Each structure stands twice: as structure tokens, then as C-alpha cells.
Amino acid sequence: MPYKTQDMVVVTGTSSGIGRATAEQLAAEGFHVLAGVRRQEDADKIKQNNIEPMILDITASDTLRALAERVEQDPLGRPLRAVVNNAGIAVNAPLEMVPLDEFRRQIEVSVIGQVAVIQALTPALLKSGGRVVNIGSVGGKISMPGFGIYSAAKYAMEAINDSLRREMSSFGLKVIMITPGGVSTSLSEKGVTTADRLSKLMTPDQHRRHDRLFDAVKAQAESWATSGIPPKKVAEVVSRAIHASNPRTRYTAGRDSALLTRLVRILPDKLLDRMLRSQMKLQ
């Protein structure tokens, strides 16, 4: 379907970072953006021309039903051009000690919630010949020490993205993965806060084993927060994926993503292990 001004786009997780930048980018291009946020104060901040905030918890079926109904019953009959699956959280801690409830929360939000959004909006996307754009991460290609829980969710979304693309290609639904590297967003800052909270749960033995790793995880997240690419750069890649008449199945965003996604395919595991531990100053 050719691009038309005022086609609708759904973007989840728009209170800040990649989601907000994407909503603003697409709104400036003329799309009517349904911007998912969890709190009214965030809805008030993002509301602007062509952006209609919606209270959306991707783990809550009632808000997903409301979203699907809003799309289906659009008063102007606008088609749904795309859904941008961006909402997520970051739980960063050594696998030995991460509470299993935290692991479940990571998967519930960053995997099951993403699938729930796709399921809720598939009928509208099939009707319009639209597309699903999943915001992945280089963490879905390479799992760094201390980031295993987050990477587990991102690896899972890689599998879901590939399977969905192959299942739905005959029906005209395009499925695209965007893989950013380090991005300067509040997600990194929230990851540091979570790591600080979880570090207090360790036993003395775990502290001896993992204090250096916790410090490295926080330093890495802080580095992304200050020196990562701006969210707008990712939003521009999302825009290209939505506008392209024949989009690629995958796009990277940031030089580190382009480099690491190649290295992981060619380097032996043990060499990659040493490189990552050295980069995080763990050896």
C-alpha cells in the first residue's frame, strides 16, 4: 500500500527514548500516531499535533482491547500503516542471583507483551497491508556478561520476528526487525537503578564473585546513556522501514550494531568471550 498522509501508526513505549522520538518523527511526516504510554502525566507531555496518546499497558488485556477497538473504529476510517513494538524493560544482573520473579517480569513485558500487541492488531494490519516493526537490540545478537536476562528477551524476539515474518508473508504482512546498538535513553539509566536494587540482594559469597561485574554492568549502561546514538537516529531508521515499498527484513542503527552483528557471525566463541570481558574490564 502506498504511503498516505494520516495513515495511522501505533507506537508503544513512547514516554521517552526511542518510542518518543519515533512518535514525533512519524507525526512530523504526517502519520496519525497512536502513542502508547502507561501514565497520564506521560500522555500529557507527548500530546501534540498528529500524536494521540493512549494509556497502554502491554501486559494488560483490557488496554490492548481498547487499542484494537480504537484502531478498528477510527472515525475517519484511516488504515493502520504499522505497529512499532518498542515498549520494554531492562533487568541486568548476574544470572546466578537474579530473582526469578525479575526474570519473569522481563519476559512478560519484553516478549509476551510484544506478542500481545501483535495479536491485538494483526486483523487491522492484514486489512491495510501494513507492517510490524519490532525494536530489537544488539543484545539480541550477542549476550554480554551481566546482560543475560535482557538478552534472553531480545533473542526471543528475534525468533518471534523471524517466525512471524515467514508465517505471514503470503498474506501481505511485512515484519521488520530494527537492531540498535548503544542508544542514549532512560532505559539505560533505569537498568542502572535496577542493577543497584538487585545488588543489595546478594549473599556475601555472591558479592565476592560479582561486585566487579555489577560495577562493569553499571559502567556499560552509563556509557550508553552518555555516548550512545540519540534516539532520533533510531527513529529515522524506523521511518525508512515504514516508508519503503519493499523494506529489508532487518536494519541496524549505530556503528556498534553494524559491527557487532557481523563479528558475532565470524568470531569463535572463546575469542568473542575474551573480547567482551576485556571490553568490560573483567580480566
Rank of each mutant, 00 (worst) to 15 (best):
T5K: 14
Q6M: 00
D7V: 02
M8S: 01
M8L: 05
V9Q: 03
V10W: 08
V10L: 00
T12R: 00
T12M: 04
T14N: 07
S15N: 13
S16L: 12
G17E: 11
I18S: 01
R20Q: 13
A21T: 02
A21C: 10
T22W: 00
T22V: 01
A23F: 09
Q25A: 12
L26C: 01
A27M: 04
A28V: 11
E29I: 10
F31I: 14
F31S: 11
L34Q: 07
A35Y: 04
G36S: 11
R38E: 06
R39P: 04
Q40P: 09
E41A: 13
E41K: 13
D42C: 11
D44H: 07
K45T: 14
K45V: 12
K45P: 09
I46W: 00
N49L: 15
E52M: 08
E52V: 11
M54D: 09
M54F: 06
I55F: 10
D57H: 08
I58M: 15
T59E: 15
A60P: 08
A60R: 14
R65Y: 11
A66N: 14
L67P: 07
A68H: 07
E69G: 14
R70C: 08
Q73N: 15
D74A: 14
D74Y: 08
P75M: 03
P75Q: 07
P75S: 10
L76N: 13
G77A: 10
G77S: 14
R78L: 01
R78D: 04
R81K: 12
R81Y: 04
R81F: 03
A82V: 01
V83L: 01
V84Y: 00
N86K: 10
N86V: 06
N86G: 06
A87I: 04
G88I: 09
I89V: 15
A90D: 02
V91G: 05
A93F: 01
P94L: 04
P94M: 02
L95S: 03
E96S: 03
E96H: 06
P99C: 03
P99V: 00
